[in-house]
Amino acid sequence: MSVLAFIELDENNIKKSSLESAGYAAEVAKRLGTTATAVALGAVAGGELEGLGKLGIQKVLHATDGRLKEENIQAYASVLAQAVEKEGAEVVVFAKSSLGDAVASRLAAKLKAGLAANVVDLPDLINGFRVKRSIYTGKAFAITEIKSGKKVLTIKKNAFSPSQSGNTATVEPFTPTLNDADFSVAIKEKVKATGDILLPEADVVVSGGRGLKGPEHWSIIEDLAKALGAATACSKPVSDLGWRPHHEHVGQTGLKISPNLYIAVGISGAIQHLAGVNSSKVIVAINKDPESPFFKAADYGIVGDAFDVVPRLTQAVKAL
């Protein structure tokens, strides 16, 4: 028996959400009286895999086959199934992300494993295997029991902070069998902003709405984000109007994020928008309308003109 953690990469670095889920896997392994193994596919920056030992991971299976460089959902699922087999794993832990969702679900079907998505807490092992999941876009939780022998979990970002113990993980080369059928989806091209903090990974997010009046005013959002080391986001009309790219749009039809801090500028706070951000730890609303519904969902609020307030906040951050 063991617990497996899937490691997601961004430009050869381990994603923060994967550090959280790897730490989660290690803690589950400890409670089950077993060990945790991580699985990483593709090139990883030097020392990072060994460093997973700090989170309690004992071993890392590292597959470097060139065909695994691209995020190919079917191939990844079949590699993980082979790792599960090799390690005799009972629990497989993913970060909740678009890749995590896609791979975890195919893996669950292969293993006939119960899958719990959006897990926010360590499992209760006294009553079977029960996990708490965030549902209704953060409006409630469901205590879910996984009845199958094998279990697959996806962990919500920012729900678990791993402890640091300080060992080094052993990295083992891993050579899974790959079939052509695993590559039936051809990845032709990938267009991705480089160097930016990925929105689902960010601890701090500065977001703008239609109150900013046009894309030419986004520099005030970007400057504050830069000063805070934050990612930028936007409301749906802003991406519909083409002011910002679609992948920045949060809400019911966009991304669901759960950063430590979400700063909403010139966004009214419609319920469909809140559905994407109400799991944030702290919410700040800046709006010129004192009646804006966002103030009801926020922890801190400023009634004021974004064009006056936001640059002053940027200055204040720089002065810290």
């Binding site: 091209e189 991705k192 902003a193 990925l198 679609h246 992948h247």
Partner: peptide
């Protein structure tokens, strides 16, 4: 859609 961008597939 991928995090931070797009991917074109066939």
């Amino acid at each position: 859609e991928i995090e931070g961008g797009k991917e074109y597939l066939e």
